[in-house]
C-alpha cells in the first residue's frame, strides 16, 4: 500500500463530499436546511450515467446531472420557502422521492458497461512538487481540480463579496435583509438551487470519475448524509468543509485499500487474513461522522458559534420569525 497512491485516491474520493458539503453550506447559509442531499446526489449520478450512455458525452452528462438535481431541490424550496413547511420533514421527503425516482429511471443502468468518463490529467509544473505534486496534481480527474478551485471561490464569495453578504444576511436576519430591499424568497430559492446543483455535481463525480458506474443505492452509500454532518463540523465554512471532506475521502480509501495487502509494515495484515473484520472497518466512516459531530457540537457550544440564526425558520414578512 503506497501512501502516495492511497492519499491521491483519497483526495479524489473526498472531492465528492466536498461538492455536496459546499452545496449544502450555500443552502444553509441562506437559512434553508436541505436534508435531501443523498437523494439529489443519487439523481445526479443516475442522470449523469443515463446521459453518457445515450450520448457518450460526459460534459453534457455533468450538466444534465446538475440541472436534474437542481430542479429536484426546487421541490424542497417551494415546500419550505413558499409553503413554509417544516424543513426537516420536507428534506426527508425529498430524499425518499429522489432515491425512488433514481431507482426507477436507473433501472438497467448497471448493465451499461464501460462508458466515456471525465478526463484525468497531470498538471504540468505543479505535479513536479515533491510529495504534494504526486498526491494532488498527478493523474487526477478534472473534477478534483475543479474542487481545488471551488474551495477558495466559495470562501471568497461568501465572505468577501456583496452577493455573499446578502446570502449571509438572509440566513442570519432575513427581516433586516428584506428591509434593505433584498428579495429573501427569491435568493433562498436560488441558493437551494445552487446546493442542488452541487449535489448533482457530486453525484456525477461519483458515476463518471471516482467510482464509475451505477450501483443503485450503493452508488452514494450514505455520502449525502455524511456531507450534512460535515456541514456542522465545518461550521458552515467552505475551507473547514474541505478539510473534513478530504479527511473522509482518505478514510474511505483506507478502508478499501487496507484489505488488499498480505502484510503492512512487515506485520501480518489482520484484515487480509480475517476478511470478516472488514465489516468493522466499513462502520468507521459512519462512526467517525458521529464522532466529528460530537466534536463539532461541543466546539459550537463552547465558542457560541453555530448555525445561521434563521436556519430552519421560514420567512414571512411582518411576522416575528425569530
Amino acid at each position: 500500500m503506497d501512501p502516495i497512491i492511497f492519499l491521491s485516491a483519497g483526495v479524489a474520493t473526498g472531492t465528492v463530499l466536498l461538492f455536496a458539503t459546499i452545496g449544502e453550506i450555500f443552502a444553509e447559509r441562506s437559512g434553508v436546511m436541505n436534508l435531501g442531499v443523498e437523494g439529489m446526489m443519487l439523481i445526479g449520478a443516475m442522470s449523469a450515467m443515463t446521459t453518457v450512455v445515450r450520448t457518450g458525452n460526459p460534459w453534457l452528462a455533468v450538466f444534465v446531472a446538475m440541472l436534474a438535481a437542481g430542479l429536484l431541490s426546487q421541490v424542497h424550496a417551494i415546500i419550505t420557502i413558499r409553503f413554509r413547511a417544516d424543513q426537516v420533514v420536507s428534506g426527508l421527503a425529498l430524499n425518499f422521492a429522489g432515491i425512488g425516482l433514481a431507482l426507477v429511471f436507473g433501472e438497467g443502468l448497471s448493465k451499461a458497461g464501460a462508458v466515456a468518463l471525465l478526463p484525468s490529467f497531470s498538471f504540468p509544473l505543479l505535479s513536479q512538487i515533491p510529495i504534494l505534486g504526486p498526491i494532488l496534481f498527478t493523474k487526477q480527474s478534472v473534477m478534483v481540480y475543479l474542487g481545488y478551485v471551488l474551495i477558495p471561490l466559495a470562501w471568497l464569495f461568501i465572505n468577501r463579496t456583496r452577493p455573499g453578504l446578502h446570502l449571509r444576511a438572509i440566513g442570519e436576519f432575513p427581516a433586516a435583509a428584506d428591509a434593505l430591499g433584498i428579495n429573501v424568497v427569491r435568493l433562498r430559492h436560488f441558493y437551494v438551487f445552487v446546493g442542488g446543483m452541487l449535489a448533482g455535481l457530486a453525484g456525477a463525480t461519483i458515476s463518471l470519475a471516482v467510482s464509475p458506474g451505477w450501483f443503485s443505492e450503493l452508488t452514494t452509500s450514505g455520502q449525502g448524509w455524511i456531507a450534512i454532518g460535515l456541514v456542522i463540523f465545518a461550521q458552515w465554512d467552505p475551507v473547514r468543509a474541505a478539510v473534513g471532506a478530504y479527511t473522509f475521502g482518505a478514510l474511505r480509501r483506507l478502508i478499501l485499500d487496507i484489505q488488499g495487502p498480505t502484510s503492512i509494515l512487515g506485520l501480518r495484515n489482520p484484515f487480509y487474513y480475517l476478511p470478516y473484520w472488514g465489516f468493522f472497518l466499513e462502520m468507521l466512516p459512519y462512526l467517525f461522522t458521529v464522532f466529528v459531530l460530537v466534536v463539532g457540537s461541543r466546539e459550537a457550544l463552547r465558542k457560541r458559534l453555530g448555525a445561521p440564526t434563521a436556519l430552519g425558520v421560514p420567512y414571512v414578512r411582518g411576522e416575528r420569525g425569530l
Partner: peptide, 11 residues
C-alpha cells in the same frame, strides 16, 4: 421496475 414502491412512498 423494482424502485416503484420506493418512489411512490417518496412522492
Amino acid at each position: 421496475p423494482s424502485g416503484v414502491p420506493k418512489m411512490i412512498q417518496g412522492i
